[in-house]
Design a protein around this nucleic acid. Sequence first.
RNA 1: GUGGGCGUAGCUCAAUCGGUUAGAGCGUCUGGUUGUGGCCCAGAAGGCUGGGGGUUCAAGUCCCCUCGCUCACCCCA
Length: 422
Amino acid sequence: MIQRPRGTADRLPDVAPAWQLVTETFQRQCELRGFAPISTPTIERTELFTRTTGDATDLVQKEMYSFEDRGGDSLTLRSEGTAPVVRAYVQNGLHNLPQPVKLYYVTSIFRYDRPQAGRYREHHQIGAEALGDPSPAVDAEIIDLLQATYKALGIDDLRLELNSLGDPDTRAAYRQALVDYFTPLTDRLDAESRERLKTNPLRVLDSKNPAVAELCDDAPRSLDYLGESARAHFEQLQNLLQALKIPYRINHRLVRGLDYYNRTVFEFVPPDAGSQSTVGGGGRYDYLAELMGADHVPGVGFGSGIERVLLNVERRGMTPSRPQQTDVYIAPLADGALESAMQLAQRLRFAGVTVESGFRAASPRSHLRRASRAQARATLLIGARELERGVVALKPMNGTAQIEVALADVVAGVQKVLAVST
RNA sequence: GUGGGCGUAGCUCAAUCGGUUAGAGCGUCUGGUUGUGGCCCAGAAGGCUGGGGGUUCAAGUCCCCUCGCUCACCCCA
């Protein structure tokens, strides 16, 4: 049997209510803040990701689903949510709208990686981006949007971690400071960290190796290397978060895995953090547009994994389910009743009644069992006796006596029964 | 890419030291009433024991390979 690709999942009907809860809650919070929906293609030109995400990142080095199309172009399945939205903003001239342009999306993300708890090759993210405004107030609103979404979902115990990476002009100095600090300690770094020290020194701070982590505690901090304007930006953001009563913790080792971030970076992590546990994160990326050859466009945004959000919804003991919604089950008892059954279903649905119709003539027992299992509130039985006289048997499923209704009066009869039987 | 654990029916699991026809519960379908649901009862369908090779008189069980799932590392959401 052909099986689904590794790291992908079939989403069966029983989990649909939980998914809907997450996406609808997010949409609601977005609309409350004037964010509008956007969707971008599943495939993009490979350069969009390689040039913005960064060559030294794991995402680019080993996790992209890239392929050559028939015309010889290299395309890549969306590996990240932000760059495509920025691309769409630039390509469609959205800078002509009032700024900032506030956008949100619900989409799938593809990364070639070994699956494990909370990690998949295809996963789904809710995300938002605010483009065209450098103000820290926009950072605050972005964080507020994500925090409010979690809260509305009953998740109120995530820890918000915050840091500022500064701007490109001060990044070089900070980078050099890290190199200067770690180079004498090279023999105490693991192989991975040594490699990073050469390619992307900031990421040494990311290491979870306890020995390396210990060294990181005394490493130079990015906050000490911020320029005047970046420092003010970070302070202002913190003032706003405090005004909004959104608690946070500054994490000097938070650098995020993608190269395009500057200034604000943040992550939401659960209290009993395992390693695959970041539920959502994001930051500012004022220089991202230029990396793809466009004019300067400041921006800030986040992505949050729906699968991981759901892990936390479940962890909080909430498992949304949808009640069965069938109002009426139609039971054809004789072969000749099938047409009438489907016609009735059509009429009832036109009147807004939820109907399931049996697809073949069978015994009342068999049909009623099905009706029960569908949790129908009423069943219409159509057999030879009814056909002969132009009526149907209308049986409420709550034990009330069954009645006979003329075909012409079925819709009214059903509505009457549904109104009283709850 | 590296390492650990696990693969028996749709699901959750049995199967003695390697022993004869691989079982149960749930679920599904049918019947118990030739036109009346849920509960109950009966029956049926459903298995290449993940796949391949090996050891043995005999393999679900032991060995090797492989595939899949899973957990962890790396990294991310």
